[in-house]
């Protein structure tokens, strides 16, 4: 579904992405992890077209993304620390985005998160007045609204209460079951192990780990993703990984 070929990006002197190659396909739920500043967000933004890579090519469903914005029709994105225009009302936000996405008919909307999070009750509130968690709920509901085939979640669970957290996880797993591709970044690895089946570890703009979760668990003998990764990296398995 997504093919990332030889992507590099520099901010000034800092090499944020260094010849990254990745192939993702439907039914995968990717845990995109790595230390701060490792290039996770840049990679996501490159897929979304927010950041234009210096080198390389990204294909989404065999379509070069630099050719036009239409590929984003099948992508849902939930940004890190959802920021919205402050004075805009929640209802206005939804109607604006719906107006932009005329390609999806009204009866095709996926309203499950919208309903589960009770966003209808927030409609009259302005986005600036919402708490961080509520903004995340709005953001998540928007990301799934148009039934995307690819869903990118940047730190989705930060700020969500436990109930909302489990609603979202459930939704992610449901989507994966429907053969969607999910890419999730988070520092809370516990959350990821419940929703992901594949791990990509980025460090200094390079991929140091790109394996099925099951495989890592088997080789390390750990059940906890946190420990898995640490052990995997410490035991020098890096060398064996496809880079």
């Amino acid at each position: 579904m997504i093919s990332i070929q030889n992507i590099s990006k520099k901010y000034g002197a800092q090499q944020v992405l260094n010849k990254v190659n990745l192939e993702f396909s439907g039914g995968q739920s990717i845990a995109l992890i790595g230390p701060n500043g490792s290039g996770k967000t840049t990679l996501i933004k490159s897929i979304l077209g927010l950041v234009l890579a210096d080198q390389g090519q990204i294909n989404v469903q065999n379509q070069d993304i630099s050719l036009g914005p239409d590929y984003r029709k099948i992508i849902g994105y939930m940004p890190q620390l959802s920021k919205f225009p402050e004075q805009m009302k929640v209802g206005q936000l939804f109607s604006l985005i719906k107006k932009i996405r005329r390609d999806i008919a009204q009866n095709e909307y996926d309203l499950s998160l919208y309903n589960d999070f009770g966003i209808a009750k927030m409609e009259g509130k302005s986005l600036g007045a919402l708490s961080g968690g509520m903004k995340q709920q709005v953001s998540a509901a928007l990301a799934f609204l148009f039934r995307p085939k690819i869903i990118i979640l940047d730190e989705p669970t930060a700020g969500l209460d436990p109930i909302s957290n489990s609603i979202l996880k459930h939704k992610v797993n449901e989507a994966r079951a429907q053969n969607c591709l999910l890419i999730t970044t988070s520092h809370i690895l516990n959350d990821l192990e419940e929703m992901c089946n594949h791990v990509v570890y980025l460090m200094d703009g390079k991929i140091v780990l790109n394996e099925e979760m099951k495989f890592i668990a088997e080789t390390t003998g750990e059940a906890n993703l946190n420990k898995m990764v640490i052990k995997f990296l410490q035991t020098g398995k890096i060398a064996k990984c496809k880079i």
Partner: peptide
């Protein structure tokens, strides 16, 4: 500057820059 978020929201939609 105040609408940086709004612009970002638009940018991730299937819209031409």
């Amino acid at each position: 500057y105040n609408s940086a978020e709004f612009i970002q929201l638009l940018l991730i939609q299937p819209l031409k820059r």
